[in-house]
């Protein structure tokens, strides 16, 4: 009881300090705030992105151009963080070999039975919905240049389509289409695709992930279009990793690392 009093007190004090800090923030959308106008004597980064990013990269959605080009290095390691999270969950939960493990005893086969109409309705509906979700996910990945979206969101939606398959039927149905071996390989390949764009740019004499020099390899009109196309390439790499890791996390969490039966 006493610990709860102290916890509440700590939350209240921290919360009031944070709220006090908020009063010093510039107003929402204030054009004179340092983030929008820059500090005296130097140009504002936001102003540069807003006015120049279309000319630099020919990508209308400037969030995508900042994410995948100006801050490409950052995004690459965000993808590595997701990969590392998936691998950590794999390392903690996954049970391999050892038949004596107590968790393996509660395994019972769990398939469709005659007369179980609720499962048939759910299973059929999900089988109709899943292709639509996957098509939308591919659209989100490919259309990230022009509308909100990109590799992370599209990858999560694509991973969610496999999770829906696993939820509606059982995990084996999803694992038959996306096995443990293939999702591990795809997770690694995603990061390698991203890093390959950086390394190839380096080999052609520019900085890591400086896509402009990839122009002769991509057969584009100018370095701007090469940047645009390379961004699509790295988004696809991100989508590979995110899709695989999202499904891997679900598969391991829902079966206590056995990869059998599931919810």
């Amino acid at each position: 009881m006493l610990s709860k009093v102290f916890a509440t007190l700590a939350v209240v004090i921290t919360g009031s300090i944070l709220l006090y800090g908020v009063t010093d923030f510039p107003a929402f959308g204030d054009p004179k705030s340092p983030a929008s106008a820059g500090v005296p004597g130097s140009e504002s980064v936001s102003q540069y992105f807003i006015t120049e990013s279309y000319g630099d990269t020919k990508v209308p959605n400037l969030v995508t151009s900042v994410l995948a080009d100006y801050r490409g290095y950052d995004t690459m390691f965000e993808t590595v963080v997701i990969f590392a999270a998936g691998m950590a969950i794999f390392a903690i939960l996954r049970v391999v070999g050892d038949e004596k493990d107590s968790r393996k005893k509660r395994v019972e086969e769990n398939t469709f039975t005659n007369g179980d109409h609720s499962r048939i309705i759910v299973g059929t509906t999900c089988r109709i919905v899943v292709p639509v979700i996957q098509l939308f996910a591919l659209y989100v990945i490919a259309h990230g240049h022009h509308s909100p979206g990109g590799g992370f969101q599209g990858g999560v939606i694509l991973g969610a389509s496999f999770i829906i398959l696993a939820l509606s039927d059982h995990l084996n149905a999803a694992l038959r289409r996306f096995s443990e071996k293939s999702y591990t390989i795809i997770a690694v390949v995603g990061i390698l695709i991203y890093a390959a764009f950086g390394v190839v740019a380096q080999l052609l004499g520019a900085n890591f992930l400086d896509y402009g020099v990839l122009q002769p390899l991509l057969f584009t009109d100018g370095p701007e279009m090469a940047r645009s196309h390379s961004m699509l390439g790295v988004e696809i790499g991100v989508a590979f990793t995110v899709t695989a890791i999202m499904f891997a996390i679900y598969a391991n969490l829902s079966t206590r690392g056995l990869l059998r039966n599931g919810l």
């Binding site: 969101q153 999560v156 939606i157 996390i249």
Partner: peptide, 18 residues
């Protein structure tokens, strides 16, 4: 909008399922 999309897919979607 991009952040909202990520939050909808990750925060409201996948996190809840996990």
């Amino acid at each position: 909008v991009d952040v909202a999309f990520t939050e909808a897919s990750v925060g409201a979607g996948i996190s809840t399922v996990l």
